[in-house]
Design a protein around this nucleic acid. Structure first.
Lengths: 208, 208
DNA sequence: GGCAGCATCAGCCAAAAGGCTGAGAGACCA
DNA sequence: TGGTCTCTCAGCCTTTTGGCTGATGCTGCC
């Protein structure tokens, strides 16, 4: 049996080293290359054709992980792409899956979880960390908690620190309507104040 | 010459593994323990008395890095504490230094930079990543815009969406005092509402 | 045709936040 | 000793926000 070839993509050297060390404990993994950016990732895939790409989403500069996934998919190569990131933002999950990721792991995942995800990915299985799965599940169960386009638009502006009046002016609606939207957004996010909504939006929804 | 004993504190296994692998390449480092939380860090320091503690600030649950640093300092042990984190937030830097950190490194630092920082720390030298140093430098130039430790602490809690009352309860101060601090924070950040302050804090200060 | 969801708006009221002024205690420093 | 900074608190007033109820027009769907 041949080893599973892996490409590590993360802008932090320590994370790459850590993953390399962890994967090195397993006989069936072979880390053939590393990349510190989206651009580098594309090059390394061309050079090494790894079976699995383990990729962080937040890259310091240049192309981010989502865009790198999208471009890898467009070349219709056969790599399985696993997202390996710190935050389980709803928005990031949706965007990564949409771009073509096979799995979604969080950085605090246990080693066995990581190993299983990589082995599963080469067999075409989707594997994700429990918190990620639970988020997706919850979204499917309660579509009521999904923001409407208009609400999402308003929430996005909200995270820029605008007042109700400013929101109304920006969106060409009355302040009353702004308040109605806000009440709905608060209910869906499970918060009671605009401050908490902003905090939740930026942290959980990945808006920034 | 005896090796420099090191304790690694980070809630992510991969980061600890990565650091361990990196430091393992240097003959004068000896990673004697690891901890995944602030509480664990205190225990491990008691058990191993490392010369240097390399600590992340953001810990998943429980005591965060800042609080761990503060408690370590209160025991007047001799460990040099190095912050090793992802973001160079002004507020975090101020709070970490105030709590008693010897140095401040970013996770994308080069290995040599990390090695030098640890070796410097045991000799009582303060070492920090270039971006961190540049932020501190800029702060020295316009001291009016520098948040005091208390203000930074409050701003940090503010980004969690707390109300003035909750802030007061959390910090054991009156609501009046909270409002005073907020007014100062707004002036320093150049904003007029708490929403804008949160937005600015998370985006510009890197808080999350 | 009716029903559900979405976006729009109004008015009323209570609570929260923000602007302003003033002030005391403790730390630090020249 | 005096000045400055930080942290603490109070009162008063205006503005903003949030909760509630109710309503209209539009669209898509069964």
């Amino acid at each position: 049996m041949t080893a599973i070839t892996v490409l590590l993509v993360d802008d932090h050297l320590v994370v790459r080293s850590g993953l390399r060390a962890l994967l090195g404990t397993q006989p069936d993994f072979d880390v053939v290359a590393e990349a510190a950016s989206g651009e580098e990732a594309l090059e390394q895939v061309d050079g090494h054709s790894p079976a699995v790409v383990v990729m962080d989403l937040a890259m310091g500069a240049g192309m981010d992980g989502i865009e790198a996934i999208r471009q890898l998919r467009q070349r219709n190569n056969r790599q399985a792409i696993l997202v390996f990131t710190t935050y389980d933002s709803d928005a990031d999950i949706v965007r990564a899956v949409d771009a073509g990721a096979m799995g979604y792991l969080l950085k605090d995942a246990a080693p066995d979880e990581i190993f299983a995800a990589i082995r599963g990915a080469v067999q075409g299985k989707s594997v994700m960390s429990a918190p990620v799965a639970s988020r997706l599940f919850q979204q499917l169960r309660n579509p009521n908690e999904v923001l409407t386009p208009r609400e999402a638009e308003l929430l996005s502006l909200l995270t820029e620190g605008l007042s109700n009046r400013e929101l109304g002016q920006r969106l060409f609606i009355s302040e009353a309507t702004v308040k109605t939207h806000l009440a709905h957004i608060y209910a869906k996010l499970g918060v009671e104040t605009r401050a908490a909504a902003i905090a939740t939006a930026i942290r959980r929804e990945g808006m920034r």
